[in-house]
Computed example of a mutant assay.
Amino acid sequence: MIINKILNVDDYYFDVFMSISESLTGFSVNELQSTGLAEIYYKHILGQIEAATFTEFLNISKNILENSYTQDQLNNAIAAEIFANASTEDIANSIITLWYLGTWEGAYVNDLSYKEGLVWNVMHSHPPGAKQPGYKSWGVKPVNSNI
């Protein structure tokens, strides 16, 4: 797979971060960017863990992404090279949690991170108290409802 320039961020590793986030979350780079949190999350991680540790994780991710030509190869490489190592596994799990729940080590990154958590898309729901479901939404059956 080729890592393309994603946004006008002068840090090459940002593109790697977005590409590995796509693989870890199952959401496309466009879907992740549409949260409005991509750069915020990247900078937040840089402020939370040592730059050398994060760079090592991103270098491993870059090699995986560049040397995987099928989805199966990519999944196997992530399992073997990221989830098999305790330090990279911790970072990967934290990135997944960050995108899905908007939290890093149990605390929300900001107000938007709660609203834009991927968990709401997966649940076909909205974040209570933050986004309205829409006018007359109560008249529509929930997704996968047996009602």
Rank of each mutant, 00 (worst) to 15 (best):
Q132C: 13
P128H: 08
Q48M: 13
I20D: 06
Y114W: 05
E22H: 05
Y100G: 03
I64N: 00
L112T: 10
L65V: 09
E56A: 06
W99K: 04
A52Y: 11
A84P: 07
L46I: 09
Y100Q: 08
G26F: 10
E22P: 05
Y42G: 01
V16M: 02
V9K: 04
N59V: 12
F83I: 02
F17Q: 02
F17D: 00
N144H: 13
T97S: 10
A86N: 09
G129H: 12
E81C: 02
S137W: 13
E89P: 02
G26T: 12
K115H: 05
I3E: 06
S125A: 15
K115S: 05
Y69G: 10
I147K: 14
V16N: 01
H44K: 14
V143H: 15
G129T: 07
D72G: 01
N76Q: 13
A38S: 12
Q73N: 04
N76D: 07
T97W: 02
T70Y: 02
L58G: 00
F17G: 01
P133W: 06
I60E: 00
Y135N: 14
G106K: 04
G26N: 07
A38T: 08
L101E: 15
D111N: 09
E56K: 05
T103L: 13
F54Y: 03
Y41I: 08
W99A: 01
S87C: 04
G117C: 03
M18E: 00
T97P: 07
D11Y: 09
I147R: 15
G106E: 10
E81Q: 10
F54P: 00
I147N: 13
N76Y: 04
I96N: 07
A51M: 11
G129C: 07
V122Q: 09
K141D: 10
E116V: 04
G139H: 13
D10S: 15
T88F: 06
S19H: 08
A51E: 09
I20Q: 01
S145V: 06
K5C: 12
N93L: 03
I91M: 02
W99F: 12
L98N: 04
N110H: 05
L37G: 01
G102N: 05
E50R: 06
F83Q: 06
I40T: 13
A107D: 11
